[in-house]
Write a protein that binds this DNA or RNA. Structure first.
Lengths: 140, 140
DNA sequence: TCTTGCACCTCTAGTCGCTAGAGGATGTAG
DNA sequence: CTACATCCTCTAGCGACTAGAGGTGCAAGA
């Protein structure tokens, strides 16, 4: 039975060491057993859990959503309707965010293109910010 | 000389009352004069500044970037190279964020589509999160 | 055996950009 | 004069970490 230190767990899961401790502190990860010298000793299952969490975070799921997904994973006989709903909600969020960012992109492009690289009083960047009415792409 | 209260300033600029006070506290907005009863009294110029800030925030500029943009606006004889650089940097950020979100969207769609609405042990949502190797769209 | 030096421990405080709430003062309309 | 909205200051909280202080554990080389 090999002992996995927190550094090793971090390296294998891709989650940083302080973040592993943080996840333990908020109860997302069960407190692992300790060595004689009070150092954490993780199991392979903990690495899987940390990897799951990291991946979910990369997909932009919030901690509370991940908490729910983890309880679903812990009990595989449940219906996956909750997991489905969480993923769908996240998808809607992402789609909205993309739309919003596309509008911003268009507006920023107009600003940057219009900049004559002269002085501030002719600068389109400043001008557009100062006077919202000049936005060519209304989005908010 | 009409006195503009903080509520009025908030209404006209679209910045919330506590946020106006917050901007003053971090020095983004000069402290306005006060009434006899110690209430803030804003000038029309303050409303313009608040509107500028709000618009920049909506475009996702960070407070420190806005601070720089405001000092540029305050001195219109400067070169607008800084403003241009800030806007360009923001544009690059936005473009990267969009690309990243598009990848997430694709992955979420696969997850949601693959969900057979059965039990968790057949759920693609949980499965993909647990095993990153099954991502169809590698992005990280 | 000693020592070097890294990895580990706990705890607190800071990040960003607000937002919420307590507890009290002011201003205005009826 | 009395409601009542709005204002004031101050502190604490949000999410998801991150940084740092100050101390302990552990493995390897001299």
């Amino acid at each position: 039975m090999k002992k996995i230190t927190i550094g090793e767990a971090a390296r294998r899961s891709g989650v940083k060491v302080p973040t592993v401790r943080y996840y333990e502190s908020i109860g997302l990860l069960a407190a692992p057993s300790r060595s004689e010298g009070n150092q954490r000793s993780f199991e392979p299952a903990d690495i899987s859990r940390l990897t799951f969490i990291r991946h979910a975070r990369e997909l932009g799921f919030e901690i509370e959503a991940i908490r729910t997904l983890l309880t679903l994973q812990d009990d595989p006989h449940q219906s996956c309707a909750s997991a489905d709903a969480i993923a769908k909600a996240r998808l809607v969020e992402v789609e909205q965010r993309i739309r919003s960012l596309m509008a911003l992109k268009a507006e920023l492009e107009t600003m940057v293109e219009g900049c004559g690289h002269g002085r501030v009083d002719q600068c389109r960047v400043i001008e557009v910010l100062a006077d919202h009415g000049r936005c060519t792409h209304p989005h908010h």
